[in-house]
Design a protein around this nucleic acid. Sequence first.
DNA 1: TACTGGTCTTGACATTTGTCAAGTTATTAT
DNA 2: ATAATAACTTGACAAATGTCAAGACCAGTA
Lengths: 192, 192
Amino acid sequence: MLEVFRKYIESKVALSDEGWALIESVCIIKKLRKQQFLLQEGDVWRYHAFVCQGCLRRYSIDDKGIEHILQFSLENWWAGDRESLINATPSRYNIDAIEDSTVLVIRNQDYERICRDVPVFNEMANNILARSFNAAQDRINTSISLDAEEKYLRLLQQFPDLVSRVPRHMIASYLGITPETLSRIKRKVTRK
Amino acid sequence: MLEVFRKYIESKVALSDEGWALIESVCIIKKLRKQQFLLQEGDVWRYHAFVCQGCLRRYSIDDKGIEHILQFSLENWWAGDRESLINATPSRYNIDAIEDSTVLVIRNQDYERICRDVPVFNEMANNILARSFNAAQDRINTSISLDAEEKYLRLLQQFPDLVSRVPRHMIASYLGITPETLSRIKRKVTRK
DNA sequence: TACTGGTCTTGACATTTGTCAAGTTATTAT
DNA sequence: ATAATAACTTGACAAATGTCAAGACCAGTA
């Protein structure tokens, strides 16, 4: 499973064997069964997690007990809660596995050490954050610009694999609409 | 005006005189009249901009010609388009001044050089990005969790100064609702 | 002062989306 | 294979939000 991570890093930057040795030494492999939590609301998140296999989701729960999914993480994506990590505050989110998954976890102190000692890793880390920020901006843009149908079509176009792999009501949650609305949109769209 | 920027940096990190000398040497002060553009859709953004005075907005324009405001930048906030900057692609956004403003502009190549040569500046830059990302996550969370009224109340609570300073239809745009809806929400809220 | 342009509000109505309840289909576990 | 559970769809209706048009308000300017 570590190989997945190594391949990922090497697809981004030129990694030396020594660099990899350092990284490898701090990686913790964690298997999650479907439904199992990686993070629960109220806990402080102190890690960085990379999904080798499977699919996770991060979500909040509102006053009425409704779940709102902020992020899915498929293979080769990261998961975690940077807000809790940076501020050392209890997380407002839950992260759990949608499928049986394998996750690679690095303690934040180790992550920071690697960033210091392996320059290309640091470069990659900065890059990931920058791209994540851009993705978040794009999501805000669509959320204030588009109606429900347009948002769905856009998601379908950007992440067709995700849409087919994840239960529809979770897609609805991610889009900020109800499962019923999504169901009607889907019908309308396929009739065309 | 440079003093505003220096104060800002010093409120975040311990800045040496030599560090400041380097930073100062690459700062470009730019005055913007109300309505004037800092960035126009289609142009490539290659800078970092810090608002010393006034207020800017970043917005996209959709097929129907409607503006959608992604971000306001008051004094002591940054403005720009990281997506265009990182990918060197034409920007999808416009940035213009809502009020007469004074902006401090740094060319990206200079910014990167300062990050290299002034470690505390680099630290601050990373910190800003991390916090911006968190803010974006929070905005996504509210956008999929709350209805229009709740979003407005939350904005009012988080940035009361902004709400009172910016034209209401722009607040509506930022929230992803129409000015009419916002007007009705406001009436309903003040009656309580 | 009166004019102008932008901002804000209001009403009537249309459209979108949510809610609730029921029933169907698909998946999972025993 | 069967039962149990979750996922999905559908309809009827309610609530939220958008659209359009008109007028009120306000600030800057001739």
